[in-house]
Structure formats: structure tokens, C-alpha cells
């Protein structure tokens, strides 16, 4: 695999947007051509090399390329937008829309991300080692068709309304999630190893949510189906006892499933 290293050399007064930073665009280009690629600074077009030092070995196909971003990238939006293959590794934090509309390949952020990470994701793998903001793996604002495939793993905590309108794929959160995870979701799997304050699966019509931590309060639109032990979903086994719910009956054709760990959650059982 050939590695192309982008090192941020200065900070911008406004966020820069870089949908062109992905192996699909870098493939078949020389380092000099990559330096000429367009990025957006507000409503101005500037060159990649205006903000980044570029070095490394170019390659012909995206599958052979790994892009490594060094420096304080916390003001960069849209890294890896629509990427289909190859790898991106961001050593620091990133701003909004990382991995937006991703279809394939692997994108790793070692730091934290802002909101809308993995929005409308269709495939591939997005891994965030730190925390992420609101609307992880959600739909575009206003749209009722959201993430349809791929895998997102967050090692830290996530904000509000993760997996909004999720229609497929898998999201694993190792930390806590804020309110309304899986709101409007119709399919796919959400696993939250930590806690959720409230409104898990609000208006969900399908798909599965597993909460292994503590839920402060639970929505009334769900039917309590009983306790299940050592459940298995899509090949993953979850040890321990879980309360099982079906809902959200606020919606027509409600057929979503929520498992909440028995431990620490006696207060939500009707």
C-alpha cells in the first residue's frame, strides 16, 4: 500500500472543506497533481497545497492508497466525502461531515469529530477513536432516507440523534449516547455499550437497538416483551439479560426492537 501524507501547515480563519481528500481522487495522480486539487475556503476555491504539505508515493488505484493527515485538522470538513476505496487515517480531530456519503474503504479518526459524521453512509468502515458530535450516521437534514450500509465504530461518546432515519448498516458506540439514538430508524443495528439518558428509538419503525448501559427513562410507545438472556444479533453475541421492547407505536407499522440491559434498568419496566 502506498502512503500519501498530508501535513497541515497553517490554520484557516474559516473551516476548509475537502471532499477531494480521498483515495478515489488521488488515484492515478502525481504528487504535484494532488497538490493542485481544489479545496473550498468559504466560497473561494483554493489549492490543496495552500494548506497542506503533500508527500509520499502515489498509486494508480484507490485500493492501493492510504492517506494520512497530520497536524491540527479540527477545522477541516468533509474529509473522505463519498470515498469508495482505500484508506484514510486522520491523526487528530476533525470538523463536521467526516465520511459523509462514504461507500467503501476505511476511514479512521484518532481524535474527536464534530457533528454529522458518516451522514448518509452507504458502505465501508468509519472508526472514531475519540468522541463524536450530534447526528452520527444520520440522514441529510430534512431527508427521510439516511444511512443505508457500512459500519461505524465510536470508541468515545456520541451526541444527540445518532442513526437518525437509519435504514441499514451497523453503528457501535463504546461510550455513552445522548438523547434519541435511532430516531426514525427503519432498519439496521445500533449498539450502545454505555448509557442513554432518554428517548431511545423514538418513532423507530424497524431495526434493532441494543443498550448495555443505563437508560434514565424509556418512551411509552413501546411494548414490553419480556426478558431474554445472551442474545445474538447479526452474528454478535451479547451476554447477560436484556429487557426486550417492540415499537415505537407512535408510528404506523411499528416493528423496531430495543434491548436494554436488565442491570441498572429495573425502573423502566412497566
Amino acid at each position: 500500500m502506498s502512503e500519501i501524507k498530508l501535513t497541515l501547515k497553517k490554520q484557516s480563519p474559516v473551516p476548509i472543506e475537502t471532499p477531494n481528500i480521498k483515495p478515489d481522487v488521488f488515484a492515478g495522480k502525481t504528487i504535484d497533481e494532488i497538490k493542485e486539487l481544489e479545496i473550498m475556503l468559504g466560497n473561494n476555491k483554493v489549492k490543496l497545497s495552500d494548506f497542506f504539505d503533500v508527500e509520499g508515493e502515489p498509486a494508480e488505484t484507490p485500493e492501493e492508497i492510504k492517506i494520512v493527515i497530520e497536524g491540527d485538522s479540527s477545522n477541516i470538513k468533509r474529509i473522505g466525502q463519498g470515498m469508495k476505496a482505500g484508506e484514510i487515517l486522520v491523526k487528530g480531530d476533525v470538523n463536521m461531515y467526516v465520511g459523509l456519503e462514504m461507500e467503501g474503504g476505511k476511514l479512521t479518526v484518532e481524535g474527536n469529530t464534530s457533528t454529522w459524521a458518516g451522514q448518509d453512509m452507504k458502505g465501508g468502515e468509519l472508526e472514531i477513536l475519540g468522541n463524536t458530535g450530534d447526528y452520527l450516521g444520520s440522514s441529510y437534514r430534512g431527508d427521510w432516507r439516511g444511512m443505508s450500509g457500512g459500519i461505524i465504530t465510536v470508541h468515545g461518546n456520541v451526541g444527540y440523534e445518532m442513526a437518525e432515519y437509519m435504514g441499514g448498516g451497523k453503528i457501535l458506540v463504546k461510550g455513552n449516547a445522548d438523547q434519541m439514538p435511532g430516531i426514525h430508524m427503519s432498519s439496521g443495528l445500533v449498539i450502545i455499550e454505555g448509557n442513554v439518558p432518554s428517548r431511545t428509538g423514538g418513532e423507530m419503525t424497524g431495526g434493532t437497538i441494543v443498550v448495555q448501559g443505563v437508560v434514565d427513562s424509556f418512551l411509552p410507545g413501546f411494548e414490553f416483551l419480556g426478558v431474554e438472556k445472551n442474545i445474538e444479533i447479526e452474528g454478535t453475541e451479547f451476554l447477560g439479560a436484556f429487557y426486550k421492547f417492540k415499537g415505537d407505536y407512535a408510528m404506523k407499522g411499528a416493528n423496531g426492537t430495543v434491548y436494554v440491559a436488565v442491570a441498572g434498568n429495573k425502573h423502566i419496566v412497566p
Partner: peptide, 14 residues
């Protein structure tokens, strides 16, 4: 206003 997703799929720059 209620359809930002309609705006997203068809936009032209100045």
C-alpha cells in the same frame, strides 16, 4: 423550507 434535501440535490454556484 421543509425540503432542504430537495435543495441539496440541485444547486448552482454564483
Amino acid at each position: 423550507m421543509m425540503r432542504p434535501e430537495d435543495s441539496k440535490k440541485d444547486a448552482e454556484a454564483t
